[in-house]
Amino acid sequence: MDRRERDSNQTLAVLIDADNANPRIVDGLLNEVAKLGVASVKRIYGDWTTPNLGSWKAVLLEHSIQPIQQFRYTTGKNATDSAMIIDAMDLLYTGPFSGFCLVSSDSDFTRLAARIREAGKVVYGFGEMKTPKPFVAACDRFIYTEIFTSDSAESTSSAPDGPALKQSAKQLRGNTKLLQMIRTGIDTCSDDSDWANLGAVGSYLSKALPDFDPRNYGYQKLTELIDAIGLFEIKRDEKGVMIKDARKA
């Protein structure tokens, strides 16, 4: 069984870099974590004596997130990263966790993610779309936190950090990388009739692209994304939802 396909009762350690995460994502973040497993540990790291973390303090008690104090010893050095990395390694060797959720857009956690995976644990990364690709690639799965931002009056979908706008068929068809990956997934998972199970294609895409998520394109489900592209046939039978490249019809 793939490490990302374990049951929803897997125990997870959620570690948040307060300096590189927005408190507005907390509700969406924890809802997403709940889909992946049980957050047995929820910790957030930062220098809580500084005013820039004030907006975090309002949500910590509400969500039972434990703040870990880390003073800045000198200007220009991020002591928060070091504290979070040391804590993660302690939890790796002493805690009964199935996986870790690392919440940051900082590439400094790239080696940490790789080391946790080397120990046989699953790593879910959460960060903004500006997150460097090495950190994204080091995770089993990476989820962009823009999809958690509410489209309320104070945060519209046109905002830089707002949720992704739903892309049109023309935009999706112009994304050659996306189309190629979907077609490769279909070819990899299809039977002799060129039909492939959509769930299997989705699993392939997640393995090939850790940051693949239909919500990045404005669609809640893979079925909706595939249907919007308009270049693939979709049917439902006793095998489930099946997909086929329309060019092979």
Results as ranks from 00 to 15, higher is better:
202 G>E: 00
205 L>I: 09
195 W>A: 02
207 K>Y: 07
208 A>H: 10
211 D>K: 11
214 P>M: 11
181 M>G: 00
180 Q>Y: 11
176 T>D: 07
205 L>T: 07
206 S>N: 11
183 R>H: 05
197 N>R: 14
172 L>I: 07
206 S>W: 08
208 A>I: 12
195 W>N: 04
179 L>H: 04
176 T>G: 00
182 I>Q: 01
213 D>N: 15
207 K>E: 08
201 V>G: 00
196 A>S: 08
197 N>Y: 12
186 I>Q: 06
211 D>W: 14
201 V>L: 02
184 T>H: 07
177 K>C: 03
205 L>W: 08
184 T>I: 07
201 V>N: 00
175 N>W: 03
188 T>Y: 14
203 S>Q: 11
202 G>T: 03
214 P>H: 11
205 L>R: 08
202 G>W: 08
205 L>V: 09
187 D>P: 00
205 L>G: 01
205 L>S: 01
185 G>F: 01
188 T>F: 12
193 S>I: 10
181 M>D: 07
213 D>L: 12
171 Q>E: 15
200 A>E: 04
180 Q>E: 14
197 N>G: 05
205 L>H: 06
192 D>C: 07
184 T>K: 12
172 L>T: 05
194 D>E: 13
208 A>S: 14
181 M>Y: 09
186 I>C: 03
213 D>S: 13
174 G>W: 08
185 G>I: 05
189 C>M: 15
181 M>R: 13
195 W>D: 02
208 A>V: 13
175 N>F: 01
192 D>S: 14
214 P>E: 10
200 A>K: 12
189 C>I: 04
207 K>D: 08
193 S>C: 10
205 L>D: 00
182 I>A: 01
188 T>N: 12
208 A>E: 15
189 C>R: 13
208 A>G: 06
186 I>G: 00
200 A>R: 10
173 R>I: 06
203 S>V: 07
188 T>S: 10
209 L>D: 10
185 G>Q: 02
208 A>K: 15
190 S>V: 03
185 G>K: 05
211 D>T: 08
187 D>K: 14
208 A>D: 11
177 K>D: 05
186 I>E: 02
171 Q>P: 04
210 P>H: 10
214 P>F: 12
178 L>C: 04
198 L>K: 03
214 P>K: 11
199 G>L: 03
198 L>N: 00
202 G>D: 00
177 K>M: 07
180 Q>P: 01
208 A>C: 08
176 T>C: 01
184 T>R: 13
202 G>C: 05
195 W>M: 07
201 V>W: 02
172 L>E: 03
208 A>Y: 09
176 T>A: 06
213 D>K: 08
186 I>F: 02
185 G>L: 04
179 L>Y: 06
188 T>E: 12
185 G>P: 04
193 S>E: 15
192 D>W: 07
187 D>R: 13
213 D>I: 13
197 N>I: 09
183 R>Q: 09
184 T>C: 04
213 D>M: 10
172 L>C: 03
193 S>R: 13
185 G>E: 01
195 W>G: 04
192 D>L: 14
172 L>V: 06
202 G>L: 05
178 L>A: 03
199 G>D: 03
205 L>A: 03
179 L>Q: 13
208 A>T: 14
200 A>I: 01
190 S>R: 15
206 S>T: 12
198 L>D: 00
192 D>Y: 08
203 S>F: 05
175 N>E: 09
183 R>K: 15
198 L>I: 06
195 W>E: 05
175 N>Q: 11
190 S>L: 06
203 S>P: 02
180 Q>M: 11
203 S>M: 07
